[in-house]
Computed example of a mutant assay.
Amino acid sequence: MIKFLDLKKQYDSISAEIDTAIYDTINNSSYIGGASVSKFEEEFGDFAQVPYCIGVANGTDAIEIALKSLGLKPGSEIIVPANSFISTSEAVTNSGYRVIFCDICPETCNISINNLKKKINDNTGAVILVHLYGMPAPIEEIMELCAKRSIKVIEDCAQAHGATSNGRHVGSFGDLGTFSFYPGKNLGAYGDAGAIVTTNGNLAERCRRISNHGRSKKYDHDFEGRNSRLDALQASILSTKLRHLNSWIEKRREIAQIYRSLLPESLLLQKVPSNVQHAYHLFVIRIKNRDRLKAFLEENNVQTGIHYPIALPDLNAYKYMDQNGQFINASSNAKSILSLPMGEHLELKQVEKVVELINCFCDS
Results as ranks from 00 to 15, higher is better:
S165F: 14
G45T: 02
L297F: 11
K288C: 10
A204Y: 00
N114Y: 09
A193P: 03
L129D: 07
G34T: 13
E64Y: 15
E356H: 15
R260W: 02
G194H: 07
I65W: 10
D61Q: 15
P138H: 12
H281S: 00
V80D: 08
E43N: 04
N186T: 04
G71A: 11
K119V: 04
E265Q: 12
L268G: 08
K288V: 05
K119Y: 13
G33F: 14
A137F: 02
S30A: 15
G71R: 10
N123E: 15
F4D: 01
K353E: 01
A334D: 00
Q303P: 04
Y259R: 03
G167F: 04
P341W: 03
A48G: 02
R149T: 07
E140S: 14
A311K: 04
S69Q: 02
S180M: 08
R209G: 01
Q270N: 01
R292H: 02
H213N: 05
D12T: 09
Y97I: 11
A21K: 02
A66T: 12
D122L: 10
L269H: 13
F47D: 05
Q350N: 06
V80C: 11
N166S: 15
R98H: 09
K319Y: 11
Y259A: 08
A48H: 02
K152Q: 14
S266K: 07
Q277N: 11
N28R: 09
K288N: 06
S15V: 01
D175A: 11
E344F: 09
L312N: 06
E42F: 10
D222H: 12
S36A: 12
K294G: 04
S13A: 14
E144D: 15
P313K: 05
K8V: 09
Y11K: 13
G191D: 01
